[in-house]
Amino acid sequence: MGGTIIMKQKILQVQGLRKHFGKHGSMTKALDGMTFDVLEGEFLGIMGKSGCGKTTLLNCIATALKPTEGKILLNGEDIGGFDDRRLAEYRGSRIGYLYQDFELLDNLTGRENITLPLAIHGKEEGIEADRLPELVDYLEIREVLDKFPSQMSGGEKQRVAAARALIPDPGIVIADEPTGALDTENARALMQKLNGLNREFGRTILMVTHDAGAASYCSRILFMKDGYIFHELRREFPQESQKDYYERILAAMAQLGGSADVF
């Protein structure tokens, strides 16, 4: 008898997504027919030159922008049909968002920044008690819980921000250039933590990045150009090393018309 094939669930489905700005002759097509799925437990990267539509895509997924056409489905539900209550639930607990520039509140401690989503959305204190210690220990930020952002390093700020994104236990984490404001050492440390969250804890992550090194932690990469997907890379587990995958990413970036510093 053959082995059982396990079909992974499609957590996020982007279907024919278009976003146009302006009218008629001055129209800009920021997204021009994006279609892709994010599978449960996947670490999916999206790469492309500045202006290709990556930020617009994330803003549509986060519901900061309304698409001109197309659908975004989370666990099969069209988020475009959500009422205000369900939108608040979606933003507050069903997706987590990790920003490039941390977006921590300066007047709150590390602990208060992490638990802010629970306070805003009226989550039970039990969630904080159960989940906070695990996240704090894994991300190695216990020593900054009582510090303000001005007292933290860039790496500590981004790990606090990661804990904030994860504490509501979202189905998917959206990471927007998470290493963009970090030096090489802190960028590598953060990516190792995100990789562990994905590989060891099954967290689903969708990450936009310019950085081939960060992208090498992804299991699959979509390359965007002019608002659509035009190339895809998959890491060949288990035989392909991260270094070999990184070299393949660099080769693809060069072949597709950009170098690592402009992607």
Rank of each mutant, 00 (worst) to 15 (best):
M1Y: 11
G3S: 14
G3Y: 10
M7E: 12
K8D: 14
I11H: 03
Q13I: 09
L17S: 06
R18P: 09
R18H: 15
F21I: 06
H24T: 10
K29W: 00
L31F: 03
L31D: 02
G33I: 03
D37Q: 01
L39H: 05
E42R: 05
F43V: 01
L44K: 02
G45Q: 02
I46P: 03
G48Y: 02
G48Q: 00
K49C: 09
K49E: 13
C52M: 04
C52K: 01
T55Q: 05
L57A: 01
L57E: 02
N59F: 06
C60K: 03
C60G: 01
L65C: 07
P67N: 08
G70P: 06
E77A: 09
D78Y: 03
D78S: 02
I79M: 07
D84V: 00
R85W: 05
R86G: 06
L87S: 01
E89H: 10
Y90F: 07
Y90M: 04
R91M: 04
R91E: 08
R91F: 01
S93L: 01
G96K: 00
Y97E: 03
L98E: 04
Q100D: 01
D101E: 11
N107S: 09
R111F: 13
R111G: 02
E112N: 02
E112V: 08
T115R: 05
T115N: 08
L116M: 12
P117C: 06
P117F: 08
A119R: 03
A119L: 12
G122C: 05
G122N: 09
E124A: 15
I127F: 09
A129K: 15
A129E: 14
L132N: 12
V136C: 08
Y138R: 08
L139Q: 07
E140V: 10
E140Q: 13
I141N: 11
I141G: 05
D146P: 01
P149H: 09
P149E: 07
S150E: 14
S150K: 14
S150I: 13
M152W: 09
S153C: 13
G154P: 10
G155T: 12
G155P: 11
E156M: 15
V160N: 05
V160Q: 03
R164C: 07
A165K: 10
L166S: 12
I167V: 15
P168V: 12
G171I: 11
V173K: 08
E177R: 07
P178H: 02
T179V: 09
D183Y: 07
T184M: 13
E185Y: 11
A187R: 10
R188L: 13
R188E: 14
A189N: 15
A189H: 14
A189P: 08
M191I: 15
K193P: 14
L197C: 12
N198D: 09
N198F: 10
N198P: 11
E200D: 15
G202N: 14
I205M: 04
H210R: 05
H210Q: 01
D211L: 01
A215Y: 03
Y217Q: 06
C218I: 09
K225T: 00
Y228Q: 12
Y228S: 13
L233V: 05
L233C: 10
F237Y: 14
P238I: 09
Q239K: 14
Q242T: 15
K243C: 05
Y245L: 10
Y246R: 07
E247S: 06
R248T: 11
I249N: 07
A251Y: 03
A252N: 04
A254P: 01
A254S: 11
L256N: 10
G257M: 03
G258D: 08
G258Q: 12
S259M: 07
V262Q: 15
